[in-house]
Amino acid sequence: MLKMFIESLKNLVSEPETIKYPFEPSPEPKGYRGTIHYNEELCIFCDKCENICPPGAIKFVVVDYETGKKEYNYNPYLCIYCGACVRECPKADEGCLVQVETRTPPLGRSVPKGKELGYFINRIDNPKEVESKWREIEELNIKTKEEYKAYKKAKRAQKAAAKAKGEE
């Protein structure tokens, strides 16, 4: 009791330790696990990041069955920033998928934009739409994958048939 008495007196005359956060910036921690950045040019579309992602915040949507072109959709507001996708990415060393040290801004009146965030967030302007639009993406992800699979199968069958025909 007496010790705390003296400690309190000492504290009264010494500087407080509070960081005046909203008025002064909070010190950015080094090595912070922040937003996931993506580079489409390096991507080999192996889908490994999509498969590991625990909350399912990365979804690929096949846009063109002919070429098999996929679009990378990333929802930073579903992401848990665990970095599992980056560890799984075979091209991570070259910078295909990188976890940067800056935080994603909280979802306020505007949505963050940038090529490195993938297609999903760049196509949305209203923050209220993030959730509903993401549900559409999830449905699209399952649908296009199945259709692509069926398309490929059909194509393979066609090829085999053509081959069989050619052999005849």
């Binding site: 007196l9 504290n11 009264l12 407080p16 509070t18």
Partner: peptide, 11 residues
């Protein structure tokens, strides 16, 4: 404020 300063806060 005094109480906060005794706890090393700003208050």
């Amino acid at each position: 404020i005094v109480k906060a300063r005794m706890q090393k806060r700003v208050g």
